[in-house]
Amino acid sequence: MNKLIPLFFLVFSIEISGDEENKLDFNNDAYPFSSEAKETLFYSLLNELRCPKCQSSNLSGSNSPISNDLKREVYELVLEGNSAEQIKSHLVQRYGNFIIYNPPIEPATYILWFGPFLLILLAIFIILFVRKR
């Protein structure tokens, strides 16, 4: 059983280091803000929203025309004083859950959210079963 513990850490270690690398060097002149809160909101949203064209990149990491349009859209929505949730739902209405990296838990995404845990349980089950023999 002790041998299984490192396996657990290995499985769950993947997500932990996710946030550090997203601190990109932005050209601040392109998106001027009056308050720091709005600026923080803007850049955190750019990290959370996916580029629809490139699909494996977020908005902050993409320079495609559609990403730049969406950055402008997010920028304007932030300036108008919308909250993170309002802006995300504004874009989800148009682009679907695909646009956010953190999709809501609903029937269509159950397999996404719970599938991995089922697979882990299955793996544990198999390992225990095989070891018992």
Binding site: P52, P65, I66, D69, R72, R94, Y95
Partner: peptide
């Protein structure tokens, strides 16, 4: 500028 395009969810 892709304004209506965004409202249509155009890729």
């Amino acid at each position: 500028e892709g304004r209506l395009a965004i409202d249509l969810g155009v890729y």
